[in-house]
Amino acid sequence: MLSHITRRILLMIPNVIAMTFLLFATVSSFLGSPAAAMLGQEASLEEIAALNKQYGFDRPIIVQYLDWIAHALRGDFGRSYTSQQSVADALLPTIPVTLELSLWAILLAVVATVLFNSVPFARRVVQPITTTLAVIGITIPNFMLGICLIFIFAVKLRWLPTTGWVPWSAGVGAHLSHIILPVVTLAANYFGSFTLVYREEYKAAYRRLFIKVARAKGLSETRVSLVHALPNAILPVVTYVGLSLGPLVGGAVVTEMVFSMPGVGRLFVGAIGAHDFPVMLAIGILVIFGVMVANLVSDIVYTSINRQVSLG
């Protein structure tokens, strides 16, 4: 077990380094001289060279990369070209927004998946509806679902605010009413794909002998389903949740744009529009790192439970 974790971590380190370096190299070489971008089109070659020297852009990429990492480890991600604000200052307040949105969305997707696909009644009667919802959930782009929800619940019914973000401190009700539509929007995709995975696992769990044993005890079908099949079917979903964090980030970016939420995604899209190199880089590398760590954690959780369960 320990050796498995060690191996996973050892495997992850070169991956993280390779991916972040590739990203760094691509961004720096393709964008051309960031100095030119900062100075604008009027700048003379001498001015650009001077600025390059000042910021160290004339050094080899690998040196710049190591330098960047060394600073990043100390919490210094450089300064935004556009706002001149430190990247850390711009980034920090956006992280809780995105994290909250993502966590709620995962939670909602998992709970809805399990509810719709486990209860025997729901499986028989609701199955066709669930299937349709899952297919729509998978195929509808976040922005489309987002504007439809805004149109129905905010514009037509006027039940909820259209867009924006209100922190917890402004009141629980206000906070939740702003976050509910984004959460549903982001969760829809995951409801779809979790449903596909969960159903397969659930069917597999149902074929196992202990399900027959549970029935033979005289348990009700609901209890057989919820107490015996469900816990065994949900474990693989844990891994799948871990694996789908990458796509989740993409969905979160789109969702934040639709609902004008001050999250990492909106900051990122703004930075891309403005070719704000340090912000793009910081977010890109943080996201890759975060997703890989989350993957590692979900893998370790899954393996440890699974080993206990199946090998022991």
Partner: peptide
Amino acid sequence: DREMKRVRGNDISIVFQEPMSSLNPLH
């Protein structure tokens, strides 16, 4: 089915061949 549920395990019980997979690993 409802009545059968009351009979199962109460009036008639079964022991299966594979004890290794007869028990739910999570409980």
